[in-house]
């Protein structure tokens, strides 16, 4: 029977919803135990949140000053040590997980499976390659620890109010390097919903035209309580910061409603939204590739249509 360790992702003392999605992937395998590991300099609040996730057995915590920031070179040796008691280690496939999981896998001398979309068994998984243009079935060696990152858009968030798993401090006794130092995190301040977990997302592309014009996207998103995203073209052009990028190299998201405004629909962008419930495209070019994947399309000038939409919503 499988024993799965899920590594908690968190920021500013709060658990990231990606953790509960990784737990969903763990529950898809008939596991004997699913434990969550919280590595932080202040574990209490995060561990309490994690303990509520449905399906988990225990929360383990490692509180160390070195865990104040998610530096892979600090976290990976601890994860590798903790992995000794487990058959699987799952980490969300976010920039956090992509950074730390391969480092932990290499310390264990094992391969890593990236972006798990589904589990066909305890050691058989599906994952995308070629920007999602092909899906492969991968079999891992059952004699080795499985280290995998979980493609969050493919998995639901496990219920987070249905459990009170015990929380235990773990003493891993791992020497940590001093060669890497956190300097700062430049984070955009926003009261809007989080792009990665929002149920509605409004994204703007090159068609929006400028940083100033992007206000119309923010305003519309606020009107319907949506998170704001952007295409790579809009980020490259400096209209919005990088953390808003949706697509193959940005965030891969699965909102119930995705509204793409002034986005032509490059394949790399479509990779990031193909798990969305309903895709709406608004573009002045009726031939734009985004209309090939949109559930609902509207051709026209976004600067005329957005105020009309706001009015129609009331």
């Amino acid at each position: 029977m499988s024993k799965i360790l899920v590594i908690a992702e968190h920021l500013n003392g709060k658990l990231n919803p990606s953790t509960a999605r990784a737990v969903s992937a763990a529950t898809a395998i008939k596991a004997e135990t699913i434990d969550v590991l919280v590595l932080s300099d202040k574990v209490d609040a995060i561990a309490k949140e994690a303990a509520k996730i449905q399906g988990i057995s225990r929360v383990f915590t490692v509180e160390r000053a070195e865990n104040a920031h998610p530096l892979a070179s600090m976290l990976a040796p601890q994860i590798a040590k903790a992995a000794a008691n487990y058959s699987h280690v799952f980490v969300p496939s976010t920039t956090f997980g992509k950074d730390v999981a391969p480092r932990a896998a290499a310390l264990l001398g094992v391969a890593q499976i990236s972006d798990v979309m589904s589990a066909e068994g305890s050691h058989t998984f599906k994952r995308p390659i070629y920007a999602g243009n092909a899906i492969i079935t991968v079999e891992a060696d059952p004699s080795q620890t499985v280290v995998a990152t979980i493609r969050t858009a493919s998995w639901p968030t496990a219920a987070d109010n249905a459990n009170s798993a015990p929380i235990e401090a773990l003493d891993l006794d791992v020497a940590l390097p001093t060669h890497t130092r956190f300097v700062e995190l430049k984070q955009g301040k926003s009261d809007r919903p989080d792009l990665q977990s929002a149920s509605r997302v409004v994204s703007g592309g090159r068609g929006v035209g400028s940083k100033e014009n992007f206000e119309i996207i923010y305003k519309f998103a606020d009107k319907i309580g949506a998170a704001v995203g952007a295409s790579r073209a809009a980020v490259d052009a400096g209209y919005v910061p990088n953390e808003l990028q949706v697509g193959q190299t940005g965030k891969i998201i699965a909102p119930e409603l995705y509204i793409a405004i002034g986005i032509s629909g490059a394949i790399q962008h479509l990779t990031g939204i193909k798990d969305a419930g309903t895709i709406v495209a608004i573009n002045k070019d009726a031939e734009a590739p985004i209309f090939e994947v949109a559930d609902i399309g509207l051709v026209g000038d976004l600067f005329k249509l957005i105020p009309e939409l706001e009015q129609a919503i009331g």
Partner: peptide, 10 residues
């Protein structure tokens, strides 16, 4: 470039 924004490390 991380999900939360821009992280600087040395």
């Amino acid at each position: 470039e991380v999900d939360a924004g821009l992280e600087v490390l040395q």
